[in-house]
């Protein structure tokens, strides 16, 4: 009898159970994808998914204010900040998941496994007998309840976190700010310098014009068919994100010739010519 009562007290509605199992699975998958996705952008998106699931869980658990804050602040602001930084560092750069430190992966997995087992064991053994629900605490509304606590019991901590945020903002500015040590040169000065050095006097050539890709990352071709790195922006050059499409046109042409040769039953063109074209594409 008591057993049943306890179970009744412990259990929640079937809808919530269904929601937990479905969304919990999503959250775990999202977390795993965060860890194992090669590209940082994908990781960030998966993490955002997990966070939204968590926001739903907060709402389910009666933390309405936190649920909304989780979506607005965390998923909305913080994750966007992440995405900005990812953009800055390079969206397409994919990490190699190959481990470089010897034994690191095994140790990490071992530790993680042991830690997880310990946590689960600890929770399983904890005497979590009371399950009160937030009905009483949220009687006057969740936000009002939180506000009452924050501005009375936790007011010092609240003020301190305000100071912490200000400090963090100033810190971030200090860290990312680059003091100019010399006056920025004007356009006239730059032009004069270019003329004086006699190197690249006209404007830099435009990037490739094949309208098949995001054309900024495709080097323009020189008259002899070779691509020129100068046409691509310096940032992409440094990231190594120049895409070379010079061979594609020739390959397309070759495939076209091949097909027409098959259709018209002509002999293929001289291999020597082909070789020269291949070399040019390199």
């Amino acid at each position: 009898m008591t057993q049943q009562l306890e179970l009744a007290a412990y259990s929640t509605s079937t809808g919530e159970a269904f929601q937990f199992w479905v969304l919990g699975t999503v959250a775990v998958i999202g977390a795993l994808c965060t860890v194992f996705m090669k590209k940082a952008v994908h990781s960030a998106l998966c993490l955002a998914g997990t966070m939204i699931v968590l926001a739903v869980f907060y709402l389910t658990n009666g933390a309405y204010f936190l649920g909304i804050v989780q979506i607005v602040v965390y998923t909305g602001a913080i994750m966007m900040l992440f995405l900005f930084v990812v953009m800055l560092v390079g969206v397409t750069a994919a990490d190699s998941l190959k481990e470089t430190i010897k034994g690191q992966r095994w140790l990490a997995l071992l530790c993680g496994l042991g830690f997880g087992i310990l946590l689960v064991g600890g929770i399983g053994n904890a005497s979590l007998k009371e399950f009160n629900g937030l009905g009483q605490a949220n009687a006057n509304g969740n936000v009002e309840g939180l506000a009452a606590l924050i501005f009375t019991k936790y007011v010092y901590a609240f003020e301190l976190t305000g100071a912490l945020l200000i400090t963090a903002a100033v810190g971030a500015m200090v860290l990312t700010h680059k003091e100019r040590t010399e006056r920025a040169r004007t356009q006239r000065e730059l032009a004069e310098q270019r003329v004086r050095e006699g190197k690249q006097v006209p404007p830099l050539p435009a990037p490739g014009v094949y309208a098949r890709h995001n054309a900024v990352d495709i080097a323009g071709l020189l008259p002899d068919g070779t691509p020129s790195d100068l046409t691509v922006s310096k940032t992409l050059r440094e990231r190594g994100q120049i895409r070379d499409v010079s061979a594609e046109a020739i390959n397309d042409l070759k495939a076209l010739e091949q097909r027409s040769a098959e259709r018209l039953e002509r002999t293929p063109i001289e291999p020597a010519n082909l070789k020269r074209a291949e070399e040019a594409s390199k």
Partner: peptide
């Protein structure tokens, strides 16, 4: 490597628990 140190910390935390 910060990650090696992190493993040590994590292992230590596990031992503490």
């Amino acid at each position: 490597y910060a990650r090696s140190y992190a493993v040590s910390m994590f292992g230590g935390a596990a031992i503490l628990i």
